[in-house]
Design a protein around this nucleic acid. Structure first.
Lengths: 158, 158
DNA sequence: TGCTCATCTACAACTCGTGCAAATTGCGCA
DNA sequence: TGCGCAATTTGCACGAGTTGTAGATGAGCA
């Protein structure tokens, strides 16, 4: 995601106005790696700007998503999360605490998909489910067969 | 998913009762490859058994999912879908008509995931987004870079 | 400074799913 | 076949998350 100053310029370039509410949200999203929900951002924004409306947060997030500066992430149940990281990446979701972690997949070009005859694929998203490091350390369970159709490994960054 | 008769036995084996409502839902799900929503099944069930409650549909689907006879599928926005196909597989979602298609992924064992340091992966689900054959034929667009981090191919079954 | 129109806010409505309690019913048992 | 109990069904209401709408507000421009 662009820094707040560039986002403001991008908004103006699209004929959208740069309001204090939007600037506040730009700042909250900048460098945010916690995949916040609209509700979560609303709480943070309310702390700094009491009176801001949840509706405003939704509108701004939707605008940012339409501009490609934000990636909406739906990880199954619960509220939609917004990811300022718009790089090509996927997500790991902790079943215990609900935290969402960015994941970069290498070797996807070797995948062969069967059953989608005639299906024109525009994008693919992989959601890994399990337990993040802090949660996994308390309940020690080993990984087994994470990706259906075969087994899969989740090594640390080489 | 097991056939209706075996599902009835499985229900009894777990101490659950086999009611006409449940038998109707067993029949509607048997061989169903359309990934219906609870609402959709409720409409079909209502046609055959007027008066059946949406609440009952939810209860029965939840029971089946707990028994492993049904796979809840959340493909981003919208209602949760239920998949009688409990094989290890993934899904393709048509952005035009919303149809969900089963997809079998080969080669997932070669994937290397970066960024999930310490993350204990229990499962992974891949959702392909694009256009199904009927929708794609009307708007002719070619596939490009479907899986982030690299390109990916969606060949027909070899 | 004044004007125009996009934005903000507040409220309500919508969708999807669940909790609860009363009425109903499947099923084991005699 | 009849009985009794516990599971089930049903309808209503509620909750979370999200969106529509209309009047008030204010940013941006001349």
């Amino acid at each position: 995601m662009k820094p707040p100053t560039e986002l403001a310029e991008a908004f103006r370039a699209r004929g959208l106005k740069v309001t204090p509410q939007r600037q506040l949200l730009f700042g909250l999203l900048d460098g945010n790696t916690s995949h916040p929900t609209a509700e979560g951002l609303f709480v943070e924004a309310s702390a700094q700007m009491p009176g801001i409306s949840l509706r405003t947060v939704y509108t701004t997030l939707t605008d940012l998503a339409e501009m490609g500066e934000l990636q909406p992430v739906s990880c199954g149940a619960g509220a939609i999360r917004f990811d300022p990281n718009v790089d090509d990446h996927h997500h790991g979701v902790c079943d215990s605490c609900g935290n969402v972690t960015d994941a970069y997949v290498v070797g996807a070009e070797s995948l062969i998909v069967e059953g989608l005859d005639g299906f024109t694929t525009n994008s693919a998203s992989i959601v890994f489910r399990g337990q993040c490091a802090p949660c996994a350390s308390s309940t020690d369970e080993s990984t087994s067969n994470p990706i259906p159709n075969s087994q899969q490994q989740t090594p640390n960054t080489p």
